[in-house]
Each structure stands twice: as structure tokens, then as C-alpha cells.
Simulated assay, not measured.
Amino acid sequence: RTRVGSGLLITGRLVLTAAHVVFPEGPVASSRVGLTVGVGETGRAGTSGRVVWPERWDGPGGTAPDAALIRIDDPGWISPQVDRLRWGALTGRAGGIAGEAAGFPPGAA
């Protein structure tokens, strides 16, 4: 069964994605994950990887975050040139920080 989701290349070989995409049948991850890096005209040939975190996932109703890391293990992989990833953190205790998110809800892929 094929599942589709999005991800973010956070280092040259690590992709951050949603756990519900790579754990399609329960607590054990897919043994191989196919990847296409880039979209539209900048799309690249496919590559593959394996889930390196978490080892198990307790599903969308569980306590673990809906996140997973895939390591690209294709020996011919050449990482695209990307800007350095910058992480941010909100400080203080005041609420009201506006934000938006887009993605696939569980079961939609």
C-alpha cells in the first residue's frame, strides 16, 4: 500500500516527516521508504531510505508525537544545495502567537 506525505530535509541525509506516513499498519515502520526530493520543475529522481526514529509508534491516538526521521541510505545520493535550516523558539509565557500549518490529516493519505 502506498502512502503519500510531505517532509523536510533537515540535514544532507535526514528527512523529518509525519509518523502516520511511515507507520501505515501499526507500531512498526515500513522497512523501506521511497522519497522524491523537490517538487514541480525542481523535482529530482527518487531515492530511498529507512526510518531511524522512532523505533515504534503508538498511533494517532497515542502519546508519541506524529513525527519520524528517515535516513537516506542511497549510496549515490547527492544532497541538493539548501540554505542552512534555522530553528526558532518562542520565549516568555504570553499566548496569542499567530501561526498557520498545512498538511495531511491522519487517514487522508
Rank of each mutant, 00 (worst) to 15 (best):
G61F: 08
R84K: 15
T2Q: 12
T47H: 09
W57M: 14
L14M: 08
A102I: 08
V22E: 03
A45W: 07
L16M: 14
A109R: 02
W87F: 13
G95A: 10
G62E: 07
V28Q: 15
A108V: 10
G103A: 10
E55M: 08
A67W: 08
G62K: 08
E41Y: 11
Q81D: 07
R13Q: 02
G99H: 03
E55T: 10
A98S: 09
G92T: 09
G46Y: 01
P105G: 04
A102G: 03
P106V: 08
R84M: 06
V51A: 01
P27A: 04
A94C: 08
S48H: 14
G5M: 09
G61Y: 02
V51W: 08
D58Y: 12
W87R: 13
G92A: 05
G103T: 05
R86E: 09
I70Q: 02
R13G: 08
R71I: 04
I72W: 02
V51M: 10
P105H: 07
G96N: 09
G7P: 00
L85P: 02
G38I: 05
R44Q: 13
P24T: 01
S6W: 12
G40A: 05
G103N: 06
D73Y: 00
G40P: 03
T63H: 06
T42D: 11
I78R: 15
A109Q: 05
G103S: 10
I70S: 02
L35W: 00
D73K: 07
T42W: 03
G34I: 11
G12Y: 05
F23M: 07
T42F: 05
S48T: 14
G40T: 11
R93L: 15
V4Y: 15
W77V: 07
T63I: 14
R32M: 04
G59P: 03
L16T: 02
I70L: 04
V15S: 01
G96D: 05
L8A: 13
G59L: 06
G26F: 00
V21E: 07
E25C: 09
V37I: 15
A19T: 03
R1T: 13
G62Q: 06
G59Y: 12
R44V: 04
